[in-house]
Write a protein that binds this DNA or RNA. Sequence first.
DNA 1: GAGAACACTTCCACTCAGTGGAATATTGCT
DNA 2: AGCAATATTCCACTGAGTGGAAGTGTTCTC
Lengths: 249, 249
Amino acid sequence: MSGGAREPGRSVTSKVLAVLGAFDAAHPQLTLTELAARSGLPLSTTHRLVRELEEWQALGRAPDGRLRVGPRLWELGHLAPNRLQELAHPWLQDLFGSTGENVHLAVRDGLEVLYVDKVYGRRAVPIVSRIGGRLPMHPTGVGKALLAYEPDWFVTSYLARKLERPTSHTITEPGRLARELAAVRAQGYALTYEEMTPGSCSAAAPVLVAGRPVAALGIVLSSRRARELPRLVEPLRAAAAGIAGAYGS
Amino acid sequence: MSGGAREPGRSVTSKVLAVLGAFDAAHPQLTLTELAARSGLPLSTTHRLVRELEEWQALGRAPDGRLRVGPRLWELGHLAPNRLQELAHPWLQDLFGSTGENVHLAVRDGLEVLYVDKVYGRRAVPIVSRIGGRLPMHPTGVGKALLAYEPDWFVTSYLARKLERPTSHTITEPGRLARELAAVRAQGYALTYEEMTPGSCSAAAPVLVAGRPVAALGIVLSSRRARELPRLVEPLRAAAAGIAGAYGS
DNA sequence: GAGAACACTTCCACTCAGTGGAATATTGCT
DNA sequence: AGCAATATTCCACTGAGTGGAAGTGTTCTC
């Protein structure tokens, strides 16, 4: 038999979405073969879909010929209204203006933090967070700030899993992490030291609206400057409170 | 006959893209009926596609139930690597820091400017440009800065069309616009006064790499403060030159 | 430079997923 | 309530989509 019998029960739309969904922060560019493997589709099917998506500029090519998200999706993505970001951005900007440090805003999405906005200047420490990117909660400042205000059942189930350990400073022992979160709740902000990336440390404060952690505001600097963090906590909390006030109304 | 004969010659993928493409800056949210009309698809087909796209969070719902671009596309869009933005952002940030004014970066795409980045603070004048948005070239500062450095044939064909006239200050008379562009080229920057939006004025400088206008950097303020523009031109040009230097290498 | 390993592209007979007009349900407005 | 606009479901028909296999190009290694 030469003709292909179609695999039953899968819509074309879902295949298009599988192709798009194969791209993520860890795999921003892929070869056709990788894309086929990641989307679970036969190579020839992937090839045809890619060609159409490329024609529409939904996908593009990196200089080396690998596939990546194209300009049309970039444009489309920016159409998604994001009330939180629009409203919070001026505060991030102010905070950046008064401190000169990397500032970012994140929300919880599932068991991860999703970065929603980021402001950085010329002499920024290179940091891992990028807008639209995701990181686990327990090694990040914003993650801890958010997690500390989640209900107990959520925290318990979060801690019950095997926790990733990106650096040797990452706290993964459930008891210690639980105590850490209690401290965050008590003082109203979280601190990290090289728990996610060697060489950087951070402070973060939750944006609490009616007691619910709708977002967290974080500030990141080189770990050599860790002792400057305490000075930054007050402006950080003030900005977080400002965002909370604006968001609540 | 009750069953639908399929319209021949159109792939499902193209229909999915037609649905997504129906959203633009002028129509960020649509009802199902509007969406069907804009994408040129039958209502029932649109409905089925929308349901799948919604399930995958490629589309979402506004509070009033209208459809809009969903979080998954927002996330996907941010994966599109944008070398220009990443590299230029620190300069916009610096420029904002030293002036406190709205700053944005745009490229030419076809006959329009496409806004690639924007930095604004708490007391920003509300301006029309938004990241991912498009505007015509002749009424905007960045548009004029870009157009002035395009080859003659391009400018001629641009001016030959009927030009939109968003405000009474918009220059649409081809001869006058051509002279304006010559002046821009002579002085190295463009100025506007209420040509796009009543109440705002702007200055813009091209980012020239090997003589080609790869982008333009603009600064926008309330038109009541138009006389402050000249002071801003030098830092603006310096930042544009900095971006050009970084981009060229 | 022969040969292998890999990545990409094209081909084509088979068949079921997608189709869209019409019927029905829901919502909003007067 | 009565009407209009909008959203959702239904279903018989069929060609668009399918994917294995063969063909082409590119990049290694020996």
